[in-house]
Design a protein around this nucleic acid. Structure first.
Lengths: 210, 210, 210, 210
DNA sequence: GCTTAAGCGAGACGGTACGTCTTGTCTTACT
DNA sequence: AGTAAGACAAGACGTACCGTCTCGCTTAAGC
């Protein structure tokens, strides 16, 4: 039962500085863009020494990553809503709302960019963000599988690739941020409205011809 | 009546330098990563003055973009193969092969990253690369629509989002570069195998239950 | 009988820490040079908190100054030896020996350097070291004056300037640390061997005319 | 007769920047003291990039050294004045005047200090400054020897040590900057007024007995 | 064949930000 | 209260690249 950090001597980490740093990082990103996010800028705006940033974060982008978690509400609901369709609807709506929050889109684009340029940060970004989002969706899908609602032909991994792929592609490669209609189209594809019990609306979901 | 360079005096652009610059940019990216791609590095490796680079390209990333087009074979076939399924298969296979070519993945990830950080380059990247890819797929889809093969419920734009979204998400956010099985799954979803002429296999493609 | 600090509460100053700090300061200077003497380094080597240093010394150089007094034997004999010449001989020999002791030269050069850069330390260095050395020489000269041995034409201040000037100049500006022959030359100049008893070569020693 | 740098291509060194840097270094030293001389400060005051300083000087103190040579008139006359005494008088007067010039004393003290802390600079300082001063005095002494005026018992090296030792000791260790009376006293000691023509007081000047 | 304008390799320049280092103060937990 | 440990704000260090500019050479079109 030994505690990891049993009793250090010396001052504790300054929580005020920590919050000031996170706020500064997010604000700079929101207002001036990630390109203009610098350690010196964060330190200056937070009224903090640069060393304090280097002491606690591996890079300025890690500051932004933590700032995102602290500043924006990252909670995307995965509560049990009784049906796969309802839960997926909520998941998409929450995800899109998050993206639309001021500053969040810019921050996420910056994080994903940095993840490409700095492989070490990339690994942390995957573990601390991307895979968490996937795990959240996986919860919904697990419940759907248990209820027998999830589309049989689509493996969960592909569903996740399609959902997150679309969201990220829209964010990174176009300026059409995903909205209600996109949610509807994705739902139609991934969670076709069940007509009724028995044979559930075969062919209605996206059948090619008619 | 467009004037085509009305007769300049002095030497012409040095094609040798141009090739050396493109090669250097691609090689540095392949070997050291985009993060370590610098104008000074390109110039040094190409045995060229920095000014020669600044004279002809707006940014080092634009050099890389052109290098990609020159070095890798970007041609993804959109030839008429008789059926939507065959053409989509070929499109996906070619796209995946391109991504798998040495250095190309790293370069594309770097370009997409830079597109997030530098809005001006972002615009050029969309026009010169992303939208070309979309247009290529659109050709296939147009022919499919004309043949009556394309899935009715899925708008072309969504199909493109799904295809490119998945490809890019896999490239940027995971290390599972897309392969044969992914092609098969996407095909199943977007171009269900035609049962027979007339009503082509309604509901078989991904129907939720059974 | 009034004690200045008549009865403080709490623990007394830790003599062990004090000695460790002084030793650390001198050792670092001796081994790595004054340039690499830092408060952090002293604290680390002495196994001591930085605050303990800042509490008791105005600057790291003051630590070194005290360390010098403690570590090196700064006692330069000014005992009555019967004659000016004998005493000056001993004074010079002792001074040169001090300079030659390992670490002392480096420390003194560092102290003099710091005295130039930090006027406050400069003042302390003069009072606590330079003027003490002058006072020591003055003792010898006073006795010589009383005996009627000292060169009449040379004021004591100039003798001190010449003695210490030569020592310091040699130390700071050349790598010829003063030795036996220098002592001899200085003696010849400042304390000419007495020709005969009575009026000891007044005017001959340097005063050419009168 | 091939020149060493026969024809470089590319821009030449910017003389305006060079002068601005030297002036800035000297001014900062004069006004704020050597302690406050920083590369960043020089660059800012000179309106110059830091790299331009690092490109051409090994350290900020080397800038100051060159600034001293440029700003202050370092010329101390060693012209032939007919007699040793006249020339030594002029040498001392010029040297003292140099030290008294505004900013020069502070600069020289800083240079000597830095020479103690940074052995590499120390070596350059000796060659570029200290030994030049010695060489100047040596010229005077050589002529004096040729004329048979120089004090027989004092080797030239000792004379130099005494002269420069006194000057530097006064500058570094006291606040009594040397003046007219010091010049007189030194002259009396090192260049006794010649009693009469012919045999110029040989042996009288300082040689006690023989 | 001379002129002249551009392209070119080289690299100096004014800048910005980097990540590190040290300073001197302050805070915490232990003795 | 004194101490060891160490977090903190501040700010200089020396480095790496940026994008611009200047030099002296080479190369062609146009006179």
């Amino acid at each position: 039962m030994a505690r990891a950090e049993p009793a250090r001597r010396g001052p504790k980490r300054n929580e005020t500085s920590r919050r000031a740093i996170l706020t500064a990082a997010f604000e700079i990103t929101r207002v001036d863009g990630v390109r203009n996010l610098t350690v010196e800028g964060i330190a200056a705006r937070a009224g903090v020494g640069k060393q304090t940033i280097y002491r606690w974060w591996p890079s300025k982008t890690d500051v932004l990553l933590e700032a995102l978690a602290v500043t924006a509400d990252l909670r995307v609901s995965v509560a049990d809503r009784g049906s796969y369709r309802a839960e997926l609807t909520e998941f998409l709506r929450d995800s899109f709302a998050l993206l639309a929050a001021p500053g969040v889109g810019e921050a996420l684009r910056g994080l994903m960019a940095e993840a490409q340029l700095d492989p070490d940060f990339g690994a942390r970004f995957r573990v601390d963000f991307l895979e968490r989002r996937r795990a959240a969706l996986a919860e919904v899908l697990d419940r759907a599988r248990a209820r027998g609602e999830a589309p049989a032909r689509l493996p969960d991994d592909l569903i996740a690739d399609l959902v997150f792929g679309t969201i990220w592609y829209r964010t990174l490669a176009t300026d059409r941020t995903p909205g209600e209609d996109d949610a509807a189209a994705l739902l139609d594809l991934l969670a076709p409205a069940v007509a009724r019990a028995g044979t559930p609306a075969e062919g209605e979901n996206h059948g090619p011809v008619e």
